[in-house]
Design a protein around this nucleic acid. Structure first.
Lengths: 109, 109
DNA sequence: TTGACATACATAGAACATCTATATATACTC
DNA sequence: GAGTATATATAGATGTTCTATGTATGTCAA
């Protein structure tokens, strides 16, 4: 099967879909995208960024120093944007179908 | 954060949204739901079923013997249907937003 | 009749992303 | 001086999934 993309990864990539961001901004972006109910952990994020760079899904997009603190920017690669697009579409199709089926069962949705 | 629901679990619950199914039928259902690109492994499924019963997301729905082979049926609980509904809606919102953002960046989607 | 494949359930151990916890450091506010 | 926000980083624990294997029946083709 196509390897599973886990939720925190999907949300981080979705956060980057709006343009380049540094790590901490991705954490904020994920929080915003999920209406506050997903708080990406720092430990998860920085490990993930290394992995995604290695997999050519994202790439470094310049460093910056603001208030004496380093900001390391990242952006989607072409490949990464394509992967995120495909994953988003796949998720929409399955989610829609799940909701459709639930409505046949009872008034759950 | 709300605990992550992993992809195989989501697909299995979506397969059950259409009504009760036995284990092997869930594997087929997931394959169908994903247009053949996700093959839920037997080891994953039977472990998962035990876990989901324990968590009150699904429940046993009767055993049957067909051609000398046991079929153990499962169905969503009220709780499980509600969880699946919420998860599906959440996924749709995020996926839609990701696609919207990608279109602003370039013609990827 | 042997071999392959579909059906059907089950368990043990490995792999791996995420989580918890911790560390470092600056700036602002109470 | 304590707490919170910003910002990155690493070590170790957790837990779902994966790989591999086992058992067993029925069907179809070589």
């Amino acid at each position: 099967m196509t390897k599973e993309m886990r939720e925190p990864t999907f949300l981080a990539l979705a956060a980057l879909a709006g343009g380049k961001k540094h790590g901490y901004a991705i954490i904020r972006g994920v929080e915003e995208l999920s209406n506050g109910d997903v708080e990406l952990k720092a430990g998860t994020l920085y490990t993930m960024l290394d992995r995604l760079v290695f997999e050519d899904v994202i790439e470094a997009a310049g460093d910056e120093v603001v208030d004496g603190r380093l900001r390391r920017y990242y952006q989607l690669t072409i490949n990464g944007a394509s992967i995120l697009g495909a994953e988003s579409k796949r998720r929409m199709v399955v989610s829609k179908e799940a909701l459709r089926r639930l409505r046949f069962v009872e008034g759950v949705a």
